[in-house]
Amino acid sequence: MKPAPFDYLRADDEEEAVAALAEAGDDARLLAGGQTLMPMLNMRLVEPAVLIDISRLPGRAGIEDDGTLIEVGAAATQASLEAWPPLSARAPLLARALPLIGHVQTRSRGTVCGSIAFADPSAELSLCLATLGGEVVLRSRAGTRTLPAAAFQTGMLSTACRADEMVAAVRFPAAEPGAGYAFTEFARRHGDFAIVAVAAIAQENGIRIGVGGACERPVVQDWPPLAGSALDDALDALAWSLDAADDHHASARYRRELVRGLGKRAVQAAQETRP
């Protein structure tokens, strides 16, 4: 349970990081919080020749709110976002999801961008980004491009990020006036990856629902305002539409049932929290 040897590079700025990445290509891995990469290194699931440490990039550790978008830099930890004073007012969905990610002892180092870059199908942050309709800022030596969340995450653990690119920041749309937000999930133990997670946004003229964990990547749908049996029917149709998979954690049928149950809870909670 020790990593294979690698060269360690600590980038002093983003230019250095992307230059090193361009040079090393597929042989390099970026190390931010390391809460996913380090276990993979320890178990030798990955054996990069070069590790580029971006955990102390100046200018990318912060959280910036421009009034519409909340930008979280590549070096910002989940704990720093959780402790960001305006979080519950400006990003209530994130405020509800963050405490469910891992544990206090992993959020202290795990980064927001790292979680989204890893693109686990059950990741809470990927689900939040997809449901809110956020975007991902990709930086390479050639320049910067910005992708919407839906175009970024292409499947299970796969994204549109090229080998010479780094996720420099992610941008979450700030809370909209009059909207209610809810996040709920089911996991075997607190801090585990969710078997199914549901994010919901309720507005006067509609509902947006996002489902994570059921299939390869988050699925987001927009509905008119629904309640009662109409909501049950929509959730049932959503559950059947997902390409839910069996694995050693749960069957596809069980996942569909979680979508129905958690979905109802999330939608109702979002509607109740509308200001």
Binding site: M1, K2, Y8, R10, L31, G34, Q35, M38, P39, N42, M43, D53, S55, A79, H103, V104, Q105, T106, S108, R109
Partner: peptide, 27 residues
């Protein structure tokens, strides 16, 4: 466990509780 699950190696790094097994010495 050496993969961040058990918590036995938790130390404080600049005050924050972290897994020492998920942190490199050079960091």
């Amino acid at each position: 466990c050496e993969h961040g699950v058990c918590g036995a190696c938790t130390v404080r790094l600049d005050g924050a509780p972290v897994r020492a097994c998920l942190t490199l010495a050079v960091q």
